[in-house]
């Protein structure tokens, strides 16, 4: 497999602020999820790949080229940025066509490619209306259309699910799965784990400008299972449930909230706790109306990784 992206000890500074901190990364063709909280350096990494930014320290090579000196590789990349595009008096078709013309493609051919791409993202009926009449989700689809219209080898998506309704999310997921099935490469950045989970890929976990970990979905899941978690369980029989949970190894702390008829359980093993509660429901007919994790699991994952990184665990 050819090397798509090669970063060697790359640091990017914005004045005194560190955008990316000593990141080394070699990615061959494939599907990657760039995962990290807001402000973790995902967009900085994408901008370095696109040549919009140059590294303060280190070296970046994309498809064998140095982005600072050669932009030819950009023809093989499609970018769908996180920023919204709002041009009220221009139609989606006109905008996408113009974006394709910027590759030096003749206008007639560019319009054909634009229509094809807009049809792929289910915008064929609305594409001739002004963008001022579009919803956020429709503008997101137009951005995706301009990224795929010239049939790139690598598609880079920054927060692609922003603004999409549930149906749009399903369609986007289906589209991305189709893209991957064609054997094309994909890098998808998001701060929400389940968005990236939807497309089977390898994960790159960024936080504070550092590449903390990389791995497959099962590896990330196994890490999540070990994270201390606080679980809220709502039940009309909360007292009975509390008595059953009290004293179990997986329960580190338990608090009863009478007014809300719920328990707040701290656990080192959320998976085991879930099994115990399920057993109570099945064997003792305890009714549970709601059970959910209090923590943002991704944030917890990053906290755990930071602790591992510092040698605190």
């Amino acid at each position: 497999m050819s090397m798509l992206i090669d970063l060697e000890h790359v640091t990017k500074l914005y004045g005194n602020v560190i955008g990316l901190n000593d990141v080394s990364l070699q990615l061959s063709s494939g599907v990657y999820g760039l995962l990290g909280p807001i402000g973790s350096g995902k967009t900085t990494l994408i901008n370095l790949i696109m040549g919009q930014l140059r590294p303060s320290i280190g070296q970046v090579r994309i498809m064998g080229s140095n982005p600072s000196w050669s932009g030819a590789y950009l023809r093989r990349i499609g970018l769908c940025p996180a920023t919204d595009v709002y041009l009220p008096n221009i139609s989606g078709l006109d905008w996408v066509t113009n974006q394709i013309c910027l590759y030096g493609i003749h206008r007639r051919e560019a319009q054909r490619l634009a229509e094809q791409a807009l049809a792929l993202v289910k915008m064929e009926t609305a594409c001739r209306n002004p963008m001022g009449t579009y919803s956020l989700g429709m503008r997101q689809r137009c951005k995706l259309a301009q990224a795929i219209a010239h049939e790139p080898d690598l598609l880079i998506l920054d927060e692609p699910f922003n603004g999409l309704d549930p149906v749009g999310r399903i369609e986007m997921t289906q589209f991305l799965r189709g893209w991957v099935k064609q054997g094309r490469s994909l890098i998808m950045a998001s701060h929400i784990l389940h968005e990236i989970e939807a497309v089977e890929c390898s994960f790159l976990l960024l936080t504070g400008g550092r590449l903390l970990a990389s791995g497959t979905l099962s590896e990330v899941r196994s890490l999540l299972r070990e994270i201390p978690n606080q679980v809220r369980i709502r039940s009309p029989q909360y007292r009975l449930l509390a008595s059953r949970l009290m004293g179990l190894d997986e329960v580190a702390d338990l608090r009863v909230e009478r007014e809300l008829q719920q328990l707040l359980v701290s656990t080192d093993s959320p998976a085991q706790l879930a099994r115990t509660v399920a057993k109570c429901v099945a064997e003792e007919n305890i009714q549970v109306t709601e059970m959910r994790s209090e923590d943002d699991t991704l944030q917890s994952l990053f906290s755990l990784l930071m602790q591992l990184h510092r040698g605190e665990r």
């Binding site: 950009l74 595009v85 910027l102 590759y103």
Partner: peptide, 16 residues
């Protein structure tokens, strides 16, 4: 603005 990143993602986008 919003579309600068898109212009920079074209080989001669900035110039054009």
């Amino acid at each position: 603005g919003q579309t600068w990143i898109l212009s920079t993602s074209r080989p001669y986008g900035r110039v054009s």
